[in-house]
Simulated assay, not measured.
Amino acid sequence: MARRRAEAADVPQTDEEAIALITEYVSAERETLLDRVTAEAAIDAIKSRLANVVTAREAEQKRRFSALKAWWEAGGKEHAGKARSAELAGAKLGLRVSPPKVKFTKGYTAEKALTWLRGLRWGRKKDFIRTKVELDKPAILKAIQAEESVKTKLGTAIYIDQPDEFFIDTGLDEDCIRKELAAS
C-alpha cells in the first residue's frame, strides 16, 4: 500500500491571517467545550435520576430477597427435593457454595500472617508469597536529572525523552463555562 502524504496546511502568510486563524481556533475550542460541558450536564442529570430509581429499586429488592430467603428456610426448599435449588416463576433459587476466601485466624492480619510465614523454615513458603518488582520511574527521572554519574550508568538501557511540543492555550476555563451554563 502506497504511503499518503498529509494534506498541505493552509499556512497564514501575514500576521492578520494568523490572528484570524487563531480567532477561529479559539472559537471552535469554545464551541467544542460548550458542547461537551452541556452534554456532560445532561448525562449527569440522567445519571442522577437513574441513581434515585436504582436506589429505591435496590431497597425493595433487598426486602424481597430477605422475604424469599426466610420462605425458603421455612419450607420452600421442599420444591428442590434432593437438589439444592429449584426453578420457580422463571427464577432459580436455593443454596450454593460461595467462592472460597482466604481468612485469618483470631489475632492475625495479612501483615502478621506474612511475617509469620516468612519466619517459617519451610521450603514451600515461597509459593504463597508474592513480590512485585517494577521500575521506580520518578526516582529514575530525578536521579538522571540531578547526577551525571547516574545518567552515564543507566544510559545503556534508560534515558529521558522530553521533546519540545507546539501548544495553543486558549485560556478557556471549564469551570467558568459550567457556571455560565448553570446560570442560563
Rank of each mutant, 00 (worst) to 15 (best):
V97C: 10
E60A: 13
A59N: 02
Y159T: 15
V37P: 04
L21T: 11
D127T: 10
L154Q: 02
I129S: 01
I19P: 04
K151W: 03
D173R: 04
G94F: 04
K62P: 01
E17G: 04
P99T: 02
K137W: 08
A51T: 06
Q145G: 08
A59L: 05
A2S: 13
W72T: 12
L135E: 01
E73T: 11
P100R: 06
S27C: 07
G171T: 04
T152Q: 10
P100K: 06
S48R: 11
T23Q: 10
A113L: 02
R36N: 10
A9G: 07
I46Y: 12
Q13G: 11
T109V: 05
A20C: 08
S27L: 09
I140F: 01
A20R: 13
E87M: 15
R30H: 09
A67N: 08
P99C: 02
K101F: 09
T115R: 15
D10R: 15
L117Y: 01
C176M: 15
A2R: 15
K142F: 01
R63A: 12
L114N: 01
A51L: 05
K69Q: 04
T14W: 03
T115P: 03
A83K: 11
R57Y: 08
K179G: 02
A70D: 12
A9C: 11
D175M: 07
G119F: 03
D127R: 07
E111N: 10
A74M: 06
F167R: 14
L68M: 10
T23P: 09
A74G: 05
R36M: 06
V133Y: 09
G171K: 03
P12W: 07
L34W: 05
L93K: 01
E174S: 04
G123E: 13
R96M: 14
I43R: 15
R57G: 01
T38P: 12
Y25W: 15
R63C: 07
H79M: 15
R30E: 13
K77R: 13
G75A: 00
A59R: 06
T14F: 06
T38S: 12
E147P: 05
R96V: 14
K142V: 03
P99N: 05
L120C: 03
A74P: 00
T38V: 07
V54E: 09
A59I: 02
T131K: 08
V53L: 10
G90S: 01
S66G: 02
K101H: 11
D169H: 06
V133R: 10
R124E: 11
L120G: 02
A86P: 06
R5Q: 15
V97S: 09
I177S: 02
E165S: 12
P138C: 01
D127I: 10
A28D: 13
I43N: 14
K137C: 03
K112H: 02
I144E: 02
A70M: 06
R4T: 14
I140P: 00
Y159F: 14
D164Q: 10
F104W: 04
K142E: 14
K112W: 00
E73M: 07
K142A: 11
K47N: 13
G171R: 01
A39E: 13
A51I: 05
T109G: 00
A183M: 05
L34M: 08
W72M: 01
T38C: 09
